[in-house]
Simulated scan of single mutants.
Amino acid sequence: MIDHLDHLVLTTSRPQACIDFYTRVLGMQLESFIGGTPPVERQALKFGHQKINIHVQGSEFEPKAHLPVPGALDLCFIASMPLQAVIERLQQAEWPIVEGPVLRTGATQKIRSVYVRDPDFNLIEISELV
């Protein structure tokens, strides 16, 4: 029944720091769009064929998760470059690595990963297929 993930929603308490991390550090593209009921301007972070919609804590769009809170996500992204290049980019951005590189089991095969935390303390795993 389900084919793939289209988007997910990230609730942030620090929208500017959130956008900076996902665009400057991870290389995603910021997109503004009109959506919701009533239609309002919203923001999303695009990468590949997916996106992350941004909700600001206390100003979430309806409908929303039952308990939308910053820092509750644990996400794994497959990098478009070798993991060593990811590590170098994180070091250049002075973004601390929490753990890794370590071997893990991904959705389709083994992966090698590093872990970081975004400005809301969500756990972000960045991986390469091995």
Rank of each mutant, 00 (worst) to 15 (best):
Glu60Val: 11
Ile52Glu: 03
Leu73Asp: 01
Val86Pro: 00
Arg42Val: 04
Thr37Gln: 10
Asn53Trp: 08
Gln43Ile: 03
His49Tyr: 05
His66Ser: 11
Ala79Cys: 06
Gly36Met: 11
Val56Ala: 02
Pro70Phe: 02
Pro68Met: 03
Pro63His: 10
Leu75Glu: 03
Phe77Pro: 09
Pro38Asn: 14
Lys46Cys: 07
Ser80Ile: 13
Gln57Pro: 01
Gln43Trp: 09
His66Ile: 13
Asp74Ile: 06
Ala85Pro: 04
Thr37Leu: 15
Val56Trp: 00
Leu67Glu: 12
Lys64Ala: 11
Gln50Leu: 06
Ser80Cys: 11
Gln43Met: 11
Phe77Arg: 05
Arg42Ile: 05
Ala44Ile: 02
Leu75Gly: 02
Gly48Ile: 08
Ala85Trp: 11
Ala79His: 00
Ile54Leu: 08
Gln57Leu: 11
Leu45Tyr: 01
Thr37Ala: 10
Gly71Val: 07
Leu83Asn: 00
Ala72Glu: 10
Pro82Arg: 07
Leu67Phe: 15
Leu73Glu: 02
Asp74Leu: 12
Glu41Phe: 09
Leu83Trp: 02
Asn53Gln: 15
Gly48Asn: 10
Lys51His: 12
Gly71Arg: 03
Ala65Trp: 14
Met81Arg: 11
Leu75Asp: 04
Lys46Trp: 03
Ala65Pro: 00
Pro82Glu: 08
Lys51Asn: 11
Ala72Val: 13
Ala85Met: 15
His55Val: 09
Ile54Met: 05
Pro82Phe: 06
Val56Thr: 14
Asp74Cys: 06
Lys64Ile: 13
Val86Arg: 00
Phe47Glu: 06
Ala44Asn: 01
Leu45Val: 02
Lys46Phe: 07
Glu62Phe: 15
Val56Tyr: 01
Arg42Pro: 01
Val40His: 10
Phe61Cys: 09
Glu41Met: 13
Pro70Ala: 08
Ala79Gln: 01
Ala85Tyr: 13
Asn53Lys: 11
Pro38His: 13
Gly48Asp: 06
Pro63Phe: 11
Val56Cys: 05
Gly58Gln: 04
Met81Val: 15
Ile52His: 03
Val40Pro: 09
Pro82Ala: 09
Gly58Trp: 01
Asp74Trp: 12
Pro38Trp: 14
Gln50Lys: 12
His66Gln: 11
Gly58Met: 05
Ile54Lys: 00
